[in-house]
Design a protein around this nucleic acid. Structure first.
Length: 593
RNA sequence: GGCUCCAUAGUUCAAGGGAUAGAACGGAAGUUUCCUAAACUUUAAAUCCAGGUUCGAGUCCUGGUGGGGCUACCA
């Protein structure tokens, strides 16, 4: 890598100049900012501070030595404490040839042989997927792809929350008020079940309100409402293995899975392995018993089991109810251990919203107390909420943005815009549908992923998602234009693949090339930080730079054949990079649009 | 109350302790006999407040103000 060579050259020059080694933590090269001359820049200030010397003088001295000792470095300049280096033209031309031959430019082998498990999605089966799930799914899927590009073996898992009182509520409502299959009701399975859940909630509220009106306290009323008692009874039947209850539960969950399947497929996310809470909710009890015997956990008088985390600045945490049943944490201890035992991975990543930060702090802490040193391999990818202009989405206020509806809308907008621009005419119906899907979802995915995962983001349904500017379609359009150029070059039998003579690149060519050169390190960084946003920001920059290039400079119409073929090669590289990067965030790149 | 995260143009987002804080949308003004105008060019517009550390702070520290989340024998 160029970076490594430069660091060595710098260290060497520093050694020769000052008879000591530079502190390596301060050595790093960055791209020279466009307003200055040069390719790469190193900041001298930290060293000048150490040696108590003038940074400009040091820059001169080191720069001269670097040029003298390294054929790769052909010039330099010093501005204040910044040493800007010029790289040999030959290097850039070799770089172009290398990338053209490379199939997977951007991917690396840095983590070959290491295994990572990424858990994401993990939905409840009592309601359909919404905007929040979309962020989760896109993030999880994209992070998994980015890790693969960094050489990891990745297993994508989905732990489905398929049991519990909330599921029983839907079941009960269906028995009472529907009894229709999704086909009969004309609804997607997950939508039907979700509707039942809402129906239950509404009826329960009415009952509770009635009890309150009769003089009960709200807490009492919530507990004593007949529907609530029925739901609890149903949960007991389920846990007792009652055949009828289990059959209904299976039937309704299957409807939901059919619905989810459609949504996942449209969204373009997939999983290597599904786990179901109904299979795993009992795991973890034995770990709790172990903790008890080790003295890490303790009993209260009512037989409930707790972990005292007050010494670590946290609270006491319940791990087993007084009736012996397990809670979320119990199960998660179990599934974590199960996951570790099955895969023995380098890391286990959980893509879960930041509202559960506390849960994961506690989970890791308890596992550590129990002597599971692999607890440190658990990484909570804690992403921010998606908010609406009014704040959180609330099903009661009908502000939940449904995943299927949103995708429909995006695809519809893509169709409308394409037709307005008169670009759909020569496409077959099937090709057009594929294109609209690609554009609509490209817009959605880019919109969701360009934001730093950790941050809360805002979605305004009224404005919806743009197709111009810093958007998915902008990037897709750039790609389509490039492909069009390349098609034309091929049609006119232009030989642009044979080796190019080395000459001085102009600034537009150089800017593009430097961006492309930077791409592999963006992939590395995105992998380290688990941040698809870095990839998204990068492709936008690259697409913008290309559009500028395209507008300013002739490509096919260039008369000088060397220049022309170099520029076509650059087009090839940009298209390749856009496609690779788009692949990491799930944004497809069309040939025409 | 306790713990925790966040605060950047009118709006939505960028900025590994480094050069003059970048974009996009929206606003204003332009570009098409020319490789796809879903594009490009020009322009106005911002670091919540007060201290501190540093050669250098949007970024680190302390305090304040404002907002989000968590604080269940729910998940």
């Amino acid at each position: 890598m160029l970076q490594t060579i430069l660091v060595e050259a710098f260290t060497d020059a520093f050694q020769k100049s000052y008879n000591r080694n530079p502190d390596l933590q301060y050595v790093n090269f960055q791209k020279t900012r466009p307003e200055f001359e040069g390719d790469f820049t190193i900041v001298i200030f930290p060293f000048s501070k150490d040696l108590k010397m003038n940074p400009e003088v040091m820059g001169q001295v080191i720069g001269e030595k670097m040029v003298l000792n390294h054929p790769l470095i052909v010039g330099f300049n010093v501005v204040k404490g910044f040493l800007n280096l010029h790289i040999n033209q030959t290097y850039w031309f070799q770089f172009i040839e290398q990338v053209i031959e490379k199939e997977d430019f951007g991917s690396n082998q840095l983590n070959i042989g290491k295994h990572i498990v990424v858990e994401y999605s993990s939905p409840n089966t009592n309601k359909p997927l919404h905007l929040g799930h979309i962020r989760n799914n896109l993030l999880g899927w994209s992070v998994a792809e980015i890790l693969k590009a960094n050489g990891y073996q990745v297993t994508k898992v989905n732990l489905v929350n398929d049991r519990g009182i909330h599921i029983c509520k839907s079941m009960l409502a269906w028995q009472k008020w529907s009894n229709q299959s999704p086909q009969e009701a004309g609804l997607k399975g997950d939508k039907l079940v979700g509707e039942m859940y809402v129906r239950f909630d509404k009826a329960l509220k009415e009952q509770t309100a009635a009890l309150v009106a009769e003089g009960e306290s709200p807490e009492q009323a919530a507990k004593n409402a007949p529907l609530m008692l029925e739901a609890q009874q149903m949960l007991r039947l389920w846990e007792g293995g009652d055949e009828e209850t289990i059959a209904l539960w299976k039937k309704m969950n299957d409807w939901v899975y059919d619905g989810f399947d459609i949504t996942y497929r449209r969204l373009g996310v997939d999983f290597d392995q599904f786990f179901y809470e109904s299979d795993t909710y009992l795991l973890g009890k034995s770990i709790v018993m172990e903790g008890l015997s080790k003295g890490v956990l303790f009993h209260k008088e009512d037989k409930s089991i707790w972990c005292d985390l007050t010494a670590d600045g946290l609270d006491e945490k319940l791990l087993l109810r007084s009736d012996g049943t397990s809670v979320y944490m119990t199960q998660d201890l179990g599934t974590a251990e199960q996951r570790h035992n099955i895969y023995n991975p380098e890391k286990m990543i959980y893509v879960v919203g930041n509202e559960q930060n506390y849960h994961f702090d506690v989970l890791k802490l308890i596992l550590k107390k129990l002597g599971r040193d692999w607890a440190n391999d658990i990484e909570h990818l804690s992403y921010g909420m998606v908010e609406l202009p009014q704040g959180k989405m609330k099903s009661r206020e009908g502000t939940v943005v449904d995943a299927d509806d949103l995708m429909d809308e995006m695809i519809q907008t893509a169709r409308q815009k394409t037709e307005e621009l008169g670009k759909a005419s020569q496409l077959s119906e099937q090709a057009a549908d594929e294109l609209y899907h690609q554009i609509g979802l490209g817009a959605l995915k880019y919109f969701m992923l360009k934001v730093d995962p950790k941050k809360t983001m805002l979605f305004n349904p009224a404005e919806s998602i743009d197709f111009n500017g810093n958007t998915g379609p902008f990037i897709q359009y750039t790609h389509a234009r490039i492909r069009s150029i390349i098609r034309k070059a091929e049609e006119s039998d232009i030989d642009f693949l044979s080796k190019t003579q080395v000459f001085e690149l102009n600034q537009h060519e150089k800017h593009l090339l430097k961006l492309i050169h930077h791409y592999p390190s963006v992939v590395v960084q995105a992998g380290e930080q688990l941040s698809p946003a870095l990839i998204a920001n990068f492709i936008f920059e690259l697409a913008k730079e290309f559009n500028h290039f395209y507008q300013t400079i002739n490509i096919l119409k260039e008369n000088n054949l060397h220049n022309r073929s170099l520029r076509i090669k650059l087009c090839l590289l940009v298209a390749k990079t856009l496609k690779h990067a788009g692949g990491l965030i799930g944004v497809g790149m069309p040939e025409k649009m």
